[in-house]
Design a protein around this nucleic acid. Structure first.
Lengths: 211, 211
DNA sequence: TCCGGTCCGTCAGCGACTGCCAGTCTTTTG
DNA sequence: CAAAAGACTGGCAGTCGCTGACGGACCGGA
């Protein structure tokens, strides 16, 4: 029999996942990431270590799982922007998803704590940056497709990739800043300031590669 | 007894390190990174696994060791630039170190192969991005100190961090591009094109944070 | 000669992660 | 209702990266 389309089974799985994630994050905040073993997490949830790895591919995955979903949402947000809009502004608007995440005071506190955990562990930070890199690749392809459909000359994939990376540098700088120095109230202002300062001059940025 | 200031002992150590690195890279190219175990590397060099870890802190370190030295060189190159020069241009000139690395045909081939190994393994790519992040932090501090000594207003660390990240996005895009599509001849042109397109409009970028 | 330091190999161990097998519980089917 | 099929789980053993502790070999100087 085929799957029923993601019914009860999938819902249950998602519930278990979030339960594991919450328990693990609590342990991470209390004892630190490296100091918390997978066995401890599994014991705290009440399952075997083997089952833990049936829900999360790795220990890092428990924290960075949200990021993957964020990547998909971001690509959708960029795709929803008008095609005539300069790419930089589309990215800027799409980053509004992050701003929304920092809207609630409670959620803001939590996100900042998670970010501090990530930047406090070299292993986690590495995995985090790698996922950001993947998201950037997806966004680059998204914008490449959009630019190719437009009237201008053929877009330059390398320059597009650099621009997406530049926008993410602004995002990363703003997130890191509020995670380190506290005061997460003005996250939007920080992001705004960085993206205004680094806005590329030639916003059209076409000029196909001289082959 | 104190160290003699880095004499024969250090030279020998460096020789062993490069021997290990060469052997390991050959194995990585032949069999892949994940498929090559530390035991195999140690056996190929003719030493125990324990001794391997006395020369390299981790398996990743074998490949990414050059990167750390590159970070130090880069900071020095930026520090050697005139203080009045816009930060973006100082970074651009400092990236000349990478351009030089791609000058020799043989070396260029090798660097591209290493880059392909890095980007082919998620684990390695993560560690690579993390080291790039550290280098960016160092460069940010370097440029912050330079800007603080100048006549202008107090510089904004977050914006400075974003700008350094943007410059590295250009560098990363150019390096990735030649590693993927081959044709490493025009690396300098690629880098030039990206950095010209993403050059910030307000190059002075002071405007201290509104506290 | 003895002594200090340095280098190395061996062993034991931890933690992340995986494959395999067996058991349970639920759902479907004859 | 019983049997088969499937999903989920725990336990076990094993790999791999990595670390600490111990003991032996070499080598310079006193």
């Amino acid at each position: 029999m085929m799957t029923t389309g993601g019914g009860l089974r999938e819902a249950s799985r998602r519930a278990v996942r979030s339960c594991i994630a919450e328990t693990a994050e609590a342990l991470f905040i209390a004892r630190g990431f490296e100091e918390t073993t997978v066995d401890e997490i599994a014991a705290a949830v009440g399952m075997s270590q083997r089952s833990f790895f049936r829900y999360f591919a790795s220990k890092d995955d428990v924290i960075l799982d949200n990021l993957s979903r964020f990547g998909a949402d971001l690509a959708a947000a960029v795709g929803a922007r008008p095609a005539e809009e300069p790419e930089w502004d589309s990215l800027h608007r799409a980053f509004g998803l992050v701003v929304e995440r920092f809207a609630d005071r409670e959620r803001r506190e939590h996100e900042a704590a998670v970010q501090r955990i990530i930047e406090g562990s070299p292993r986690l930070l590495a995995a985090y940056l790698q996922r950001l890199d993947r998201i950037q690749q997806h966004l680059t392809e998204e914008l490449m497709g959009r630019a190719a459909a437009g009237p201008g000359p053929a877009p330059d994939r390398m320059v597009m990739r650099a621009m997406v990376g530049s926008a993410f540098a602004c995002l990363h700088a703003a997130v890191s800043h509020i995670a380190a120095d506290g005061d997460p109230e003005r996250f939007e202002q920080h992001l705004e300031r960085a993206m205004a300062a680094l806005r590329p001059a030639g916003i059209g940025l076409a000029s196909s590669e001289p082959s």
